[in-house]
Amino acid sequence: MKSTITQSRSIRSYFSGFQTSARFVRGVDLAGQWAAPILIVAVLIMAAIFAPAFYLPTNLKTVGIQIAVLGIVAVGQTLVLLVRSIDLSVSAVLALGAVIVVQTEAGGPLWISFVEAFAVAAAVGLANGLLITKRQVPPFVATFGMLVFVQGARLAYTKGQASGTVPEILRAISFEQVGPIPAALIVWLIVNIIVLFILQKTRYGRWIYAVGGNPAAARYAGIPVDLVIIGVHTICSMLAMLGGLLLSGYIGYVDLRLGADYNTNSIAGAIVGGTTFTGGRGNLFGTAAGAALLIMLLNLVVVLGLPIHWQYAVQGIVLVMAVALQGFRQFLLSR
């Protein structure tokens, strides 16, 4: 046998060559849990030094409303990620909402257009859920298909150009202020309280964590796994719709490109906040902090006068860093 035997080194072995102390592991674990809040404080301090314009009242209001909109969409995304799914159609639903409300306002009463908007959102979420559970379409593909479909349907419906004015009520729940606080932030807070209650205090909340943590064990425990997944997708789409209505109330007009970034940003917000792609882990405090951090960074790009396209770089970096940190934390904890 005249052949050389070489020792191949796997990627894992490079990783594990790394000597760690218990203190280091604890540090990374805490960093993973508290990354978003800690970074928020750091960003606030840096902004005070390098970009004082960040603290102008008008800018703070802008940031606040944007956090509220992204925060609401990210709550839905967190729920979906908790059951090992993903929703790439949130941006399309978000953009659709404003269009429906604005276009129907001209005709019938306002409340009907709201009912219509949320019914359409629920239908999109239901379709996502049914495709994923009953037809076993991978969530990535099912919701991406839905994204394209909903976008196309919206363009067909508006014939390429949206027109009309945003109703007063949307401005009231978004842009108007309650004391010093923009109304949108209060809506965000209410959404968080309701969903937090569902996750912590109801049977459905336990089911969500069980389905994400171990779908087989959930099924054996008699949990209606498919219904949980369908329900979560429906809630996610309806929250995206709510986010869309708040966003149009804030912008004051309807733009066809409205909300295009919300897929990446809602996922990034949830992941920065400690939710994992593998399901069963994540909480709303983290997601709230993650969404806030992301919006603040994106805003700083504007305030610092950098070319606006740097925003994309920021989104990408935050998402990759967050996934890397959470992955590393998982790796260390499993040793």
Binding site: Y209, A210, G213, A216, A217, A218, Y220, G280, R281
Partner: peptide, 9 residues
């Protein structure tokens, strides 16, 4: 581990 428990809970 496969059917009985949600291990991370």
């Amino acid at each position: 581990k496969t059917y009985g428990l949600v291990l991370n809970q």
